[in-house]
């Protein structure tokens, strides 16, 4: 008789547990307000990434097309993947001193692992993160970027 009882108790316990499970999915089925999916290409206008989002390395330029990069190359040595190449020139200042200025700051997005070391170690805060995230391109060479804009120069007081 005891085994008879456990047989039916098992069935009803099992059925109850199944119904509890079904109540969860059933509840979500009838509450479409809880849908969490974002409609991505449609919400592009309103989609705002967080300020700190590490999308793309960039070099902020001010309105006079001036940046803060001295071309010291610390970011290049700190980058674990070699995704930064700094090509610098030496120019002669009017007072006869020689000064290093940046020629090209090349950034390979294809190799970057977004470890934040270049931004963190930059002594003159010349680098920052951009919030763009749509990086897909048809040609790999487009992922190699020159961060300093053409014709840009360094802000005066940076050493």
């Amino acid at each position: 008789m005891n085994s008879f009882y456990t047989y039916f108790a098992d069935i009803f316990r099992g059925l109850k547990s199944l119904l509890i499970g079904m109540s969860v999915t059933g509840r979500y089925f009838f509450s479409p307000g809880q849908i969490v999916t974002q409609q991505y290409p449609e919400n592009r206008k309103t989609l705002k990434m967080f300020d700190r989002f590490k999308g793309d390395l960039m070099m902020p330029h001010d309105t006079n097309n001036q940046h803060r990069c001295t071309g010291c190359g610390i970011c290049e040595t700190n980058c674990p993947n070699g995704s930064i190449e700094v090509i610098s020139d030496r120019i002669e200042l009017p007072d006869g001193k020689k000064k290093r200025i940046i020629d090209k700051h090349i950034y390979h997005l294809s190799m970057c692992t977004f470890c934040n070391l270049c931004v963190k170690t930059c002594p003159s805060d010349a680098l920052a993160w951009d919030q763009t995230f749509e990086h897909a391109v048809f040609d790999r060479s487009k992922l190699t970027k020159i961060l300093n804009k053409p014709g840009s120069s360094i802000i005066k007081d940076i050493e």
């Binding site: 967080f50 590490k54 692992t113 977004f114 070391l117 993160w129």
Partner: peptide
């Protein structure tokens, strides 16, 4: 993402 800038591979501790 809000604090560390990425979702999976953060490299947040130094």
């Amino acid at each position: 993402e809000e604090s560390f800038g990425s979702r999976l591979l953060h490299s947040y501790y130094a």
